[in-house]
Computed example of a mutant assay.
Amino acid sequence: MTKDSVLDDPTDVKGGSPDRFGYSWEKFNDLTPDQEEQFRRWTAPLDLGKDWHGKRFLDVGCGMGRNSYWPMMHGAAGGVAIDVDERSLAAARRNLARFPSVEVLHRSAYDFEERNVFDIAFSIGVIHHLEDPGRALQRMRQAVKPGGAVLIWVYGYENMEHYVRVLNPLRNLVFSRIPVSAVRYLAYVPAAFLWIFLRLGLSRVEYFKLLRRFTFRHLHHIVFDQMIPRIANYWRKDEVELLMQQAGLNDIRLVWVNEMSWAAVGYKAAETIWDNTRHRHRKPIPTDTL
Rank of each mutant, 00 (worst) to 15 (best):
R171A: 06
W262Y: 15
H74M: 00
V240H: 03
I273S: 04
E113V: 14
V154K: 01
R107Y: 15
A81P: 01
S5C: 09
L137R: 05
E161C: 06
F224E: 01
R212S: 15
T287M: 04
L173E: 07
R87T: 03
K27S: 09
A143E: 05
Y185P: 02
N168Q: 13
S88L: 08
V257M: 12
I231S: 01
G75A: 09
L173C: 05
F122E: 01
L210I: 09
R236N: 09
V189F: 14
Y110L: 12
S68L: 06
D47L: 01
L202C: 14
K268H: 10
P33T: 03
I124Y: 04
V164L: 10
H281C: 02
R41C: 12
C62A: 11
A91R: 11
D238E: 13
R213T: 10
K14M: 07
G63L: 08
D132K: 14
H74S: 00
D85G: 03
K283C: 03
E131I: 10
Y157M: 11
I222D: 13
R204W: 00
I285P: 07
H128K: 10
Y69H: 14
F193D: 01
R253A: 05
S17H: 09
A136F: 10
R165K: 15
Q38M: 12
L31M: 13
H218F: 14
F175V: 03
L130Q: 13
G79V: 05
L48Y: 08
W70S: 13
A247D: 10
M260Q: 07
Q138P: 00
L105H: 01
G65E: 02
P286D: 11
Y267C: 00
S17K: 05
V174G: 00
G201F: 04
T272V: 10
R40L: 02
N116D: 14
V102W: 05
N95S: 04
G75N: 12
K27I: 06
V60D: 02
G61I: 13
S88E: 10
H162K: 12
L200I: 12
L243H: 03
Y69A: 04
R278I: 09
Y155R: 04
E103M: 13
A92I: 11
Q142Y: 00
S68M: 06
S5W: 13
D238L: 03
Y157T: 02
A44T: 08
W256G: 02
V180E: 08
G201A: 09
H106K: 15
S181M: 07
R236W: 09
S176Y: 12
P286W: 06
T272N: 02
H218L: 09
D59Y: 05
A121G: 05
I273D: 06
R253G: 00
R41Q: 13
V255M: 00
D4I: 12
Q226M: 12
H129S: 08
R217C: 05
G79N: 04
R56L: 09
H162S: 15
D34Y: 11
V255G: 00
P146G: 08
G15D: 14
P169S: 10
A182N: 05
R212Y: 08
N276K: 08
A90P: 03
M64Q: 07
D288S: 11
S24K: 10
L89I: 15
E161A: 10
K50S: 11
H218M: 09
V255L: 01
M140D: 04
Q35E: 13
R141G: 03
T215I: 01
R282Q: 11
R184F: 15
G63E: 04
Y185G: 06
R199Q: 15
R107M: 14
S203D: 14
R139L: 00
D238Y: 12
T215M: 00
I124F: 11
W274N: 13
